[in-house]
Design a binder for these strands. Sequence first.
DNA 1: CATTCATATGATAACATATTCATACGTATT
DNA 2: AATACGTATGAATATGTTATCATATGAATG
Lengths: 120, 120
Amino acid sequence: MVVHILAHNHEEILKKVKSELPEDELICDLADLFKVFGDTTRMKILYSLFESEMCVCAIAELLGMAQSAISHQLKVLKNANLVANRREGKTVYYFLADNHVRTIVAQGFDHLIEKHQKQK
Amino acid sequence: MVVHILAHNHEEILKKVKSELPEDELICDLADLFKVFGDTTRMKILYSLFESEMCVCAIAELLGMAQSAISHQLKVLKNANLVANRREGKTVYYFLADNHVRTIVAQGFDHLIEKHQKQK
DNA sequence: CATTCATATGATAACATATTCATACGTATT
DNA sequence: AATACGTATGAATATGTTATCATATGAATG
């Protein structure tokens, strides 16, 4: 008598993986963090701040965008704790909040490079 | 005679930062890569694959979503070289393409933790 | 205290994205 | 070759996101 193995019994894998999966909230927070890196304008802002702190209107000029757009994006970056700011008179200077930003971007960069090399 | 400094002369900063900014294409590619991490469903899939390779329908069952939705997202992950797959009969198994994925996610995780601790 | 400059914010419109449904494709089995 | 199963894909819808405009806020200055 032949014992038929069910084509798709995932029970064991599912049980194992399910037990190791982090809470939904953590996963959402992570996704939300990466979402912040996932926009060209914000990435440009971050790269700019790699070089130097900058005021809002300088960034706007650099990227050729409206000051308002930059302000909105800086708010997003600030909410994610990626940048911080300081006021000096009328001017507000933004700068990187910590070095994680560089590390995360650098990791992404490495991945791109590797991907690129594989495709040769 | 008092020399007035123009309130907002960014020329020097702009020149410096501009010269250091990577090409638009690189920045776009980077943003596009992080965009892939920036979705809860995809992040759940990645976390699942941390544990074990899985077939499409197992992931669908695990996440309680339609098989089609998972297929679509797996395609996005594959296009970004974050996952790869192998066929075994009718079944297609997906797995992490390399360890960058873990590293990138871990960096994001670290940032979240630090942010959380600062808020205490 | 009215004005100017720098920044922030709210509303809106244009665009992008994710999920589902329906269905097609590919593989194995009878 | 007909069927069943697992996966992929296209279209459509619902939902999010981004940039801009208009305008408000906040700080310095005459």
